[in-house]
Amino acid sequence: MIKTTGILAAGAAATMLMASGATATTIVIDDFTDSQRVANLPTTDFPSASIVSGGMFGGTRYMEVLNQDGVTSGTSLNGENGALTFNNDSGTSGVGYIVYDGTSDRDDATNTEIGPGVNTSGLNENLVIGSEAQTFFSFDLSNFNPGSGGSTALFSAFVWDNDGNRAEFAEIIGAGPISPNLFLSEFVGEDIDWTRVGALAFSIDSREGTSPLGTYGGDNFDGQVGVISVSAIPLPASVLMLLGGLGSFFGISAVSARRQRKA
C-alpha cells in the first residue's frame, strides 16, 4: 500500500502557489469614490482641512492644504469620481496632505507638519503581500499632468507602525517620467513593522524648497492620481511553469497510487 497524503498535499500546495502567483493580491488604499474637497483660498466655501469616512484604508481620510503666503489665489485638493486632484491657481504654489490613520479626529487640523496628531495606534494593518522587496504601492498616473512652465513638486510618502516608528520616501516630480510603483523597501528611516502599520500619509509640495534630492517648486503645478493600492510582483513565468509541472507530476502520481491500491 502506498500512502498518498503527502503527494496530494504537495500537489495542493503547488496549485495554491500557482494561484497566488497568477492572481496577486491587491489592497486598495483609496479609490476616491468618497468625495472630499479642501481649499486654501482667501474666500471659499471649502475648509482648508477636513475628514471623511468611507471605504478608504482605515475607514477615514484626512486632507489639508496650505498655499504660499501673500497670494490672492489658492491651492486645493479634490477627491471624487475615482481621482485625487492637486491644483494651484495661476501664480500660486502650495502643499497638500492626505492621511489615513483610522481616526475621525485630529489635533493638528491647522498644523503645517504632517506628523503631530497622526494616530499611530488606530490601525493594525499588514501591507506585506510578498516580501518587502516584492510589495509596492501602485499609483494610477494615467491622467497625471503637471502642467507647463517647468514647475516641480516634492512628493513624499510616510508610514508609521503601531509602535510609532516612522519611515518615509521622497521624490521630486514634474521634471521627467514618474514610476507608478513605490516599493516598501524604498522607504528609509526607522525600522518599520509593515505587518502592523498604524498610519499612512502622502504629501505633495510645490512651494519653492530644497531637499537632499535638490531644489523643487514653482507656480501653477497641478497633478492628478487615480486609485492608490498595494500590490506584489507575481511569480515569474518560469516559476509558474515549474509549479505547473510539479502539479501535473503530483496529479499523475496520485492517479498511479490509486491504481496500485485498486490492484
Rank of each mutant, 00 (worst) to 15 (best):
A19H: 11
L246G: 10
G251Q: 02
V128Q: 03
I2A: 08
N81H: 02
S256V: 04
E186D: 05
F187T: 01
A39C: 14
I7R: 08
N126C: 09
A14W: 01
I192R: 05
G55W: 01
S104M: 07
F221C: 10
N165G: 03
V28R: 14
V188Q: 14
G74I: 08
L84S: 00
L246V: 13
E113S: 12
Q68G: 10
S203G: 01
P47E: 02
G226D: 08
F137T: 03
V28D: 15
T25F: 10
D140F: 07
A14R: 03
E64Q: 06
G11A: 11
A237N: 14
N111Y: 13
D105C: 01
S179C: 09
R259T: 02
N67G: 07
Q260G: 10
L240A: 01
W160D: 03
L141S: 07
D89E: 08
F32H: 06
R61Y: 13
A14I: 04
T25K: 11
G218T: 06
D31F: 15
D89T: 05
V227N: 15
D222N: 15
G96A: 04
A175Q: 11
I29C: 09
T103R: 07
Y100V: 08
Q134D: 11
E125T: 04
T33L: 15
N88H: 04
I233S: 15
D205H: 04
I2P: 13
M16L: 11
I129F: 01
A14G: 04
F32A: 07
G59C: 06
F221S: 11
L154N: 09
M63P: 00
T110D: 10
D105P: 02
T103Y: 03
A201P: 02
T92N: 13
A14P: 01
A199L: 15
F169C: 14
R259Q: 10
G218E: 10
S156W: 05
G174R: 08
R196E: 14
D69G: 03
T23Y: 08
S50V: 00
S211M: 12
F136Y: 15
S148G: 05
D161L: 09
G130T: 08
D34V: 06
N87L: 13
G147C: 05
G102H: 09
L184N: 12
M1D: 11
D219R: 04
A49Y: 03
T215H: 08
D69Q: 11
I27K: 13
G226R: 03
R196V: 02
Q224N: 02
D30C: 02
A199F: 15
A39I: 13
V159Q: 15
A167D: 06
S73A: 15
G217K: 00
D34T: 05
V197L: 13
R106I: 01
I7M: 08
P42A: 12
G54V: 05
L123D: 05
G223W: 07
A232H: 12
V230H: 14
N220S: 12
S231Q: 15
A83H: 13
S138M: 10
I173P: 06
S20C: 07
D140V: 07
A167F: 03
E113L: 11
G247D: 10
G70E: 15
S35E: 15
G115W: 14
I192V: 09
N81C: 00
F202E: 10
F221E: 09
P116C: 03
R166T: 14
G130S: 06
D140M: 08
F136A: 11
N67Y: 02
T15D: 12
R37C: 14
E168V: 00
V95M: 01
N40I: 14
A19N: 12
L8C: 08
E208K: 12
